[in-house]
Design a protein around this nucleic acid. Structure first.
Lengths: 338, 338
DNA sequence: TTGTATGCGTTATCAA
DNA sequence: TTGATAACGCATACAA
């Protein structure tokens, strides 16, 4: 095996106790002995056995938190806010003196392999994005304290959730537009499940609260293939008796909406105002005109998830909580005052 | 302390040896004993002490690799390829049965704090992006096998490097344009140090090889404040006797260049063709027209870094190597054949 | 200030 | 197949 403190002790002609004290920076060691020991350690390239060092302490804590992305498709992995989730969570984990283990886990049908991280038990808790589809995967997850980041629905895992408040955020966007004289506001989405559902609730609520037209004809949320542009939505809206004066969507869809509007000869924000959602870094600024958007504060979501995880680790019997993180408007150039 | 195999042995009225054998799935255990032991473990909620388990084996390996982002500014963290580096490296690390520790480390002047990951020695090696400025930070890094991802220059750390071949990539972009009849190609950059230097070498090389105008007047690489648009570059280029027919830049700068061109009444690709660099997901498609770009294959860079790290861990005395990863053209709508 | 001896939770050896 | 006991490398009371 490798060099141990016994070898060092012999080489430095001291006892193992003295070597151990040097290792632990114990100030009661005499200078001469300390130097002899340090020299011997350097010379023999001594590496203390970290497991032997820890064996004496209570070993239930590893000081490591897993950041686990489960069944997140490749394309979604590169959505702007993913990095914000990760970075926020990691900062909070590191700040607490713990370590952050990052892992993506894609379940493949017929393969029930469980990640080593879960098997080995070298973590104290899990921050998860997405969720396992298999029953066995679910069971392994539930062995650990865990918090879910912005689950879209469909998760069967019993856990705390930190969520972007899309409902309030959409209400905020509506309020912002109403304050600038808009009455007919459309909302566009390339799918009809997931976050859009919360957004629609906020949309309708704001319609009532601010006395806006929030009719079904202004809601264009349909499942469309990913490669389809947004011509369908714009065509539908501009075949109405009264087209909208503003459109709500998410940032990436706004790119397509911009193009569809331009094709139709409509100018932004001259003819139509647009507000995105997510405030994707670099992206909103790239569009012409620059896109006004709702910042979902994804970094805060990551941080809040870790904070909640620490609470739960202290208090395992606590009841599950859904914590909502509020967004904020970031003004750019895509909204006009009527 | 917590429940140990001694407690289990007593409860199940067997010896510790038998309990240990059950723990390790040793087939020589009798069925009756095995059941008694398993029952006792379940009942007492037994958690084996992982450090005690490892103490006997050779303990130099932790099975963990650090993915360390050092002094990377917040805004750069959210560049599109960062996530690709991370994801590529993580997949390769996980694929080898190891675990990926993710950490950002921002040195603050006057604070020589070293990340716990380096202090505790619970990693076998480091994949690094950026580098420490402090001497002490550098020394800690050099205690581990390490590979650097795409260092911009200025690093004093002695290590292997995996780099995007910006030089060949820029040559490739030039070749692509030359094949489509372009002779006067400009290159634009909002800074004059960093990757642009390699790109300029490839630019000039291609100029010679393909007989293109690659005069200094077509090179617009200057340090400008981040908020400045690209009016300066376009103004300079279109005050030339013969303006370029094509422009090379990086994706994010292309957003600004598009706007500056439109302001001048120039159409893309009708009047000017544009090729970006990085092939930023979601971004290139958002621009109108969609941006043709050089994919730098950042995921492959992350993977290659890990592969090289494993080689180095096997062979610590190997001489350092710089490994270049080749990009590939992704065709979209921003280039016209002359 | 230093050395000795014992304990940490587990695995491995050897005898039964 | 099982049990008793000696390692594993380090930390730490206790004695010197």
């Amino acid at each position: 095996m490798s060099v141990t403190i016994v070898d060092i002790a012999k080489k430095a002609t001291v006892s193992v106790g003295t070597v151990s004290r040097v290792l632990n920076n114990n100030p009661t060691v005499g200078l001469k002995h300390k130097q002899r020991v340090m020299a011997a350690m350097a010379e023999m390239n001594f590496q203390p056995n970290r497991w032997a060092r820890k064996i004496q302490k209570d070993s239930t804590k590893t000081g490591q938190i897993a950041l686990l992305f489960i069944n997140v498709e490749e394309s979604r992995m590169h959505t702007s806010y993913m990095m914000q989730y990760i970075h926020g969570a990691q900062q909070e984990i590191t700040g607490s003196g713990r370590k952050c283990l990052f892992l993506t886990w894609n379940e493949t049908p017929g393969d029930d392999a469980i990640p080593n991280i879960l098997l080995d038990g070298e973590i104290d808790g899990i921050i998860m994005r997405g969720y396992p589809r298999s029953e066995i995967g679910r069971q392994w997850m539930e062995r650990y304290p865990r918090v879910s980041i912005n689950p879209g629905g469909g998760s069967m895992i019993d856990c705390d959730c930190i969520m972007v408040d899309y409902q309030a955020g959409t209400r905020l966007r509506m309020e912002y537009l109403a304050a600038r004289g808009h009455r007919r506001i459309a909302i566009v989405s390339p799918d009809e499940t997931g976050y859009i559902q919360s957004k629609l609730i906020g949309y309708k609520q704001a319609g009532k609260d601010f006395g806006l037209d929030a009719d079904d004809e202004l809601i264009q949320a349909h499942n469309v293939p990913p490669e389809s542009d947004f011509g369908w939505a714009i065509d539908n809206l501009w075949s109405l008796a009264k087209p909208p004066t503003a459109i709500l969507s998410n940032d990436y869809s706004c790119g397509g909406i911009y193009k569809a509007l331009v094709r139709r000869g409509l100018s932004i924000p001259g003819d139509v105002s647009i507000i995105g959602c997510d405030n994707s870094p670099n992206y909103c600024e790239a569009l012409a005109p620059e896109l006004t958007s709702l910042d979902i504060c994804a970094t805060d979501v990551g941080k809040a998830a870790v904070q909640r995880l620490f609470e739960r680790m202290k208090n395992p019997e606590d009841t599950n909580r859904n914590i909502l993180i509020q967004g904020r408007m970031v003004e750019r150039e895509s909204v006009r005052k009527l």
